[in-house]
Every structure is written in C-alpha cells, then in structure tokens.
Design a protein around this nucleic acid. Structure first.
Lengths: 198, 198
DNA sequence: TGAGATATGTAATTTCGACTACATATTCAC
DNA sequence: GTGAATATGTAGTCGAAATTACATATCTCA
C-alpha cells in the first residue's frame, strides 16, 4: 500500500535533525521558522504539510535530543561501570562535552532552550523545567543505588547531592555560552568532584 | 531654572524600579512594553517621552540592579570580614537570596535576563555575558588577594575556582527557576563549599 | 495674559514572524 | 489516461508588539 499523492520532496528526519541543531544552538525563540525552512531548503508550506507547528517540531527535537547528541551525560550516569563516584564524574565530564557540542557552544538544550521567554511560550518553558527535574531525579536515583550497594555512606543527603550536580551541570551550560574553554569546564568538574568525596 | 513645559505625571525612578522588577522576574523578552506601562499606570507615549526605548530602560535596569537588590552576592564577597573562604561562602549564600528575591523566584537578572533569545537582541545578550565574566573576574581577584595574604594556598588555580563559583551561582539561578527551595539551595552552597576546602 | 515648551491620551502605524490560500505539480490506483 | 490524493511555490494573511502622529493639556517665563 504505497502512499497516494505527490511524494514529499525532502527528508523529514533530516529536517528534524536540522531543526534540533538550530533549536539547540539558538533556543526556541531564537529560531525563526523562515530560518529553519531555509536551512532545510524548503518553503513554509512544505514544512507545515509535514509538521503541525513550530512548537510541535520543537517537541520532536526535544525527544530526538537525548536519542542522539544530548544523551551524553545521562548515558554516562547510567552506563559507567565502577563506583557511583565514577559514574557521577563521567556524567559531569559528558555534560561538558554536550555543552561544547552545541552548534553554537550554547550549552544543553534542556537547560537553556527557553529560560525567560514570552508568556505565550510558558507551556514549553514548564516542560523544560520538568525535564530538568527528571534529570535531577535520575541522579538522585543513582546516588541512592550507591547507598544501597554500600558504595556511598548511608548518611549522605542524596537529594542535596543530586541537586548540587544538577546545579553544576546547568551552570556549565551557561559557562559554555559565556565562552569558557573545554579545559576550564573540565577544571570546574574536577573542582566539583572534590565536593563529592563524601 | 525650573523645567519649562507640562511636568511629568509619574515618578520616573519609581517606573524604573518597576521596570527592573519586571525584567528581573520575566527576562527582557518576557516583558512587553504594554505590560510595563500598565504596571506604571501610564500610556506608551509617556514612556517614550521619558525613555528612549525598551532596550534603553533595560540597560538602566541593569545599572539599578546591583545598586539595589541584585548586589547581594558581590557585596558579600567584597565586605565579608575574615577569611577568603568566609567571603566566598557569604557570596554564595547571598546569591541564593538574590535568586529567591526575584519577583518570580526567577534567579539572577544578569544570569537569566536574556539567555537564548532573538537575533535582534544579540547585543544585549552579549552585554549580559560580559557582566557575568566581570563577576567571575571579581571572584578571581578576591581569591588572588587571599593568596597574596597567605589566606589561601599559593598553588590554587584562582581562575578555575572562580569559574567554579560562577558556575554554581549561575546554576543556582536556574535551580531557583526550577522551584528548588531555599533549604535545598543552601544545601547546594554547603556542598559546593566542601570543594573549596583547598 | 500669552507664548513657548513639554507631557499626555487616543489611535494609529510599522514591522516582524508564524502560518495559510490557492493554483500547480507529481504521484498512485484503476 | 483519468481521477484522487498529497506536495510545492508564490504570495499572501493575521496577529502581536514596539513605536509614533497628532491634537490637547499643563506648566514656566516674560
């Protein structure tokens, strides 16, 4: 059962990837649809034939982000063997790479995609906040696992340490935007790790 | 030599203070001029008779910010007696209060006022970046003073530690936006301080 | 008191950016 | 080949937000 009508003249997945790059580089409100369609090489009607709205494709980009470039830090947290401390260290180092991997060195898409924008985009801003809270929760879960496995002292405050890690990761995104070098960001991570010698 | 013509019907300083509150709460692009004029109780022409543009009053607000509410952290860094560590600790605790003092619990105005906005506001975004770099420089200066006064070990990397502090402070702003409580933010500061037991 | 100067209110204007109407083009099913 | 279905390009529309035109109001100075 092949599709009827005229076939789409561009690669939707490639367009989405391009959109993600743009949103990552410039934030939601920093990207104009005209810019996006120009980057893909299409006209607005072709875009709207394939996507419901700017907001809709941004949501798709948010889903694509961890599935590709943006998953570095959570993947490191999840997959790094060894101690919990090793995993947290790898996570922070990975978040440095994510921040620098932005097409504009603009930090993490979830952290900076929409910070203080227009009221009309409040829903998206709240979604990003929820994503960030989820990240903090994943970190806390990993720390609590470390406690259960006697890898960390039983008396640590997992939520506090997780919030500290999230704070540093978000700060790293802004530092990347401010032009900090990879070496400097890695130095920040190493300094942060000394706070985790619990 | 009194002023000629009809006198202004509103208090310009009060209007500026209101504008600062709004910009602090919602960011540059999150505030509409209509909202600002409504909050002040005037109409747009009265605003434009007293101020050149939205961008101009935002610049004034950026100047007013440290002169009033926003100066907490730098004042603490500057004025806290005792050790350098005491000063840094006070600075971080003050930045928690600044972040929570925002009319919307929205973090520091310099950190979050315009993160990933429209291309047309690139100049303002760059100004904010410069302000943040200045903050990091002030911290580094204080640390270097600590080294000179033998208050800190001679071999610390002042720039790295200063960048760490700036990273945490900026992260605290985002955490405040994400709804972290004062207790949690203070916990983050205490955790960060353990990284500074150099 | 009147002339000059500045402020205000009403109601635009202007610009920009997301989104779309519509005519045309390309494909599939039969 | 014809018709149904979907895509594309041109050229808009539509709404939102900063900014302003202009008539009027209120003040100082002579």
């Amino acid at each position: 059962m092949a599709v009827r009508g005229r076939p789409r003249g561009f690669d939707r997945d490639a367009a989405l990837a391009k959109a993600m790059q743009l949103f990552w580089a410039k934030g939601y409100e920093g990207v104009q649809l005209a810019e996006l369609t120009a980057a893909v090489g299409i006209n607005p009607p072709s875009f709207y034939a394939a996507v419901q709205s700017k907001e809709a494709i941004h949501r798709e980009a948010l889903d694509l982000y961890p599935a590709t470039a943006g998953d570095g830090s959570m993947a490191a947290l999840r997959d790094t063997p060894g101690t919990t401390t090793d995993a947290v260290h790898a996570m922070l180092l990975a978040s440095v790479e994510v921040a620098l991997a932005s097409p504009s060195a603009g930090g993490c898409m979830d952290s900076l995609g929409l910070v203080n924008g227009q009221d009309q985009n409040a829903a998206l801003r709240d979604d990003l906040r929820a994503l960030r809270r989820t990240t903090a929760t994943l970190i806390r879960d990993r720390l609590e696992r470390g406690v259960r496995e006697a890898d960390l002292p039983a008396d640590i405050d997992a939520e506090r340490v997780a919030t500290f890690c999230a704070t540093v990761m978000q700060g790293l995104s802004l530092q990347a935007q401010d032009g900090a070098s990879r070496d400097m960001l890695i130095g920040v991570v190493e300094t942060a790790m000394t706070a985790l010698d619990i």
